[in-house]
Write a protein that binds this DNA or RNA. Structure first.
Length: 363
DNA sequence: TTGTATGATTGTCT
DNA sequence: AGACAATCATACAA
């Protein structure tokens, strides 16, 4: 990649050329500058590179006025058009044929990704009022009213801060880019008087500058994206938003768990049913059963009371169902089906034997 | 403030 | 893919 800073170099080179034209170089400036139309005697070729270097080094000591005068002298020199056309010819044959082959990078996929993300997050593009956070949080636990409004406004404030910084930085970059481009274009136009520079080359140089600045912009976009991601994870991480399930949800889950103690692994359909009843998601149901099985197994004693309550409840429910059945039909044996509706006294024995069927108990 | 309860996540295993 | 086990992070009661 070509460095735009190299653009500055030809300026000095132009001056060097001036120094080379008059006899004696910079050491005898007045010989030609006083009378531009006079024909300078043919300049003897420099004896060695040391001389040339010395001449070039001397140029830096010249004042701006002196340099301008020399430039003027060069522009008015009668040999200048001829030299210029020779330069054009040489350039035609060499530089241009080499360049222009490696042009036009494809649109950067990474930059597009960043742009899309910033747009989606509401950092770039028009400000999205009232949109707030893209709330990808798990369903509000237990169907409780979502009281995250404080966090939301905090999130929005922080996002707006990021947005503000992003735009102000972007503006700075754009301004710097345009200033630098103008500067370079002026330089090139100025230099095009002494060396052949086609408009296409200027355009190409402008593209190079824009490319450089867009790299900086990409870094800005990258870090803005990172900031947004951190903000999102900080505010929207589901673990930070944990809410206990509603009583209703816990009730429904516990009822199922204790009434299926021999096999507390609800099917997909059962999970969906429980989720619906408790106002939670199916994955929350799965999580709950996963946690419950492990915690129950780890400390059965702790859950005994709870188990008794639900066992009693299930027994009462079953009795009611049976009683209704008895009234409606012929008498039948209560609790004959599952054997999981039991009295509290038998709790431990039954659950111990029931647990033998658990998947985790196999090892 | 602290300890416990609890929902969610992650890594591993089958 | 689903289950388990460990762990995290928050909610909540004392």
């Amino acid at each position: 990649m070509e460095d735009p800073s190299r653009l500055m170099a030809p300026h000095g080179a132009g001056v060097a050329l001036q120094g080379g034209l008059p006899p004696g170089g910079p050491a005898a400036p007045t010989a030609t500058s006083g009378d531009p139309s006079s024909v300078p005697p043919p300049a003897p070729p420099p004896h060695d590179t040391g001389d040339v270097l010395q001449q070039i080094m001397a140029i830096t000591d010249q004042s701006l006025d002196e340099a301008q005068a020399r430039k003027h002298a060069l522009n008015c020199h009668r040999m200048k058009p001829a030299l210029f056309s020779v330069l054009c010819e040489i350039k035609e044959k060499t530089v241009l044929s080499i360049r222009g082959i490696q042009e036009e990078d494809p649109p950067d996929a990474q930059l597009m990704r960043l742009d899309n993300m910033l747009l989606a997050e509401g950092v770039s593009g028009p400000e999205k009022r009232g949109r707030g956070a893209p709330m990808a949080v798990a369903a509000t636990p237990g169907g409780c009213p979502n009281d995250n409004s404080i966090e939301h406004s905090d999130y929005r404030a922080k996002l707006s801060q990021i947005r503000q910084i992003y735009h102000s930085e972007l503006e700075k970059y754009e301004q710097a880019c345009s200033e630098f481009t103008t500067h370079v274009m002026n330089l090139l136009r100025e230099q095009s008087r002494t060396r052949p520079i086609s408009p296409k080359e200027i355009e190409r140089m402008v593209n190079i500058i824009h490319g450089k600045f867009s790299t900086i912009q990409m870094q800005l976009k990258q870090s803005t994206c990172e900031a947004v991601m951190i903000l999102r994870s900080r505010f929207l991480d589901a673990r930070r938003k944990r809410r206990n399930f509603s009583k209703q949800a816990t009730e429904v889950l516990n009822e199922y768990f204790y009434s299926h103690l021999s096999n507390p692994y609800p099917s997909e359909e059962a999970k969906e049913e429980l989720a619906k009843k408790g106002g939670i998601t199916v994955s929350q149901v799965s999580n709950w059963f996963g946690n419950k099985r492990i915690r129950y197994k780890k400390n059965m004693g702790k859950f005994q009371e709870e188990a008794n309550i639900y066992a009693a409840k299930t027994a009462v429910d079953a009795t009611n169902v049976v009683a209704q059945g008895n009234r409606a039909n012929s008498p039948s044996t209560p609790n004959s089906g599952k054997g999981e509706s039991f009295g509290s006294l038998q709790f431990l024995l039954v659950t111990m034997s029931a647990m033998n069927g658990w998947k985790c108990s196999q090892d």
